[in-house]
Lab assay of single mutants.
Amino acid sequence: LQAFIKTLTGKTFTVEMEPSDTIENLKAKIQDKEGIPPDQQRLIFAGKQLEDGRTLSDYNIQKESTLHLVL
């Protein structure tokens, strides 16, 4: 599935991932794409901060969901 990552500066980019991917995997993909170390990334979806060990499906993240990236 493709999801949108929106930063506080208003920049939006897309990442490809599977519902079974962990938040940790997602942070690694963001690092590959944007060069931001995972330990500096905080991802917010539906008002909740996402925990590394959980999966996208745990948070009911669907295709074309928008996640907010806070540094």
Rank of each mutant, 00 (worst) to 15 (best):
T9V: 07
P19R: 09
H68S: 07
F45M: 09
I5R: 00
A28G: 08
M17R: 00
D52F: 03
V70D: 06
G53L: 07
I30L: 04
Q62N: 14
T14I: 13
G10W: 03
L26E: 01
D52H: 05
V15T: 02
K27R: 05
Q62D: 13
F45T: 02
I30M: 01
K6Q: 12
T12L: 11
T66Q: 08
A46I: 06
Q2K: 14
S20I: 06
L67R: 00
D39L: 08
S20W: 14
T12P: 04
E24K: 11
G35K: 05
V15A: 01
I23T: 04
F13R: 00
T22A: 03
T14N: 05
T7Q: 05
K48P: 02
A3N: 03
Y59W: 02
K63E: 12
R54G: 06
L1H: 06
G53S: 11
F4V: 14
G35L: 03
E16I: 12
A46V: 06
F13M: 04
E24A: 15
S20Q: 09
R42I: 15
L50V: 05
G47I: 02
K29E: 03
T22F: 05
Q41V: 08
A46W: 08
K27S: 00
S65M: 12
Y59R: 01
I23C: 01
T7K: 05
T12V: 13
L71C: 08
Q40I: 10
K29T: 05
E16F: 13
A46M: 14
T9L: 08
Y59L: 06
G10A: 02
N60A: 08
K33V: 13
D32A: 15
P38N: 07
D39P: 05
I23V: 13
L26G: 00
I44Y: 15
E24Q: 11
P38Y: 13
P37V: 06
L56D: 00
T9Y: 13
E18R: 14
K63Q: 13
E64P: 04
L43Q: 00
R54Q: 09
E51G: 04
Q41H: 02
K29Y: 08
K63T: 15
P38C: 08
S20E: 10
K27L: 02
D32R: 12
I23D: 01
N60Y: 06
T55D: 03
I36Q: 02
L71P: 07
Q62Y: 10
D58A: 05
I44V: 09
T14R: 09
R42Q: 12
F4A: 07
I30H: 00
M17W: 12
D39A: 13
R42H: 13
T55E: 04
E64H: 14
K6N: 07
L1N: 06
I61P: 05
D39Q: 10
S20M: 09
D58M: 05
T22N: 04
L1P: 04
G35H: 05
N60W: 05
F4M: 11
E51K: 07
G47K: 03
E51W: 04
Q31T: 08
Q31W: 15
P37C: 06
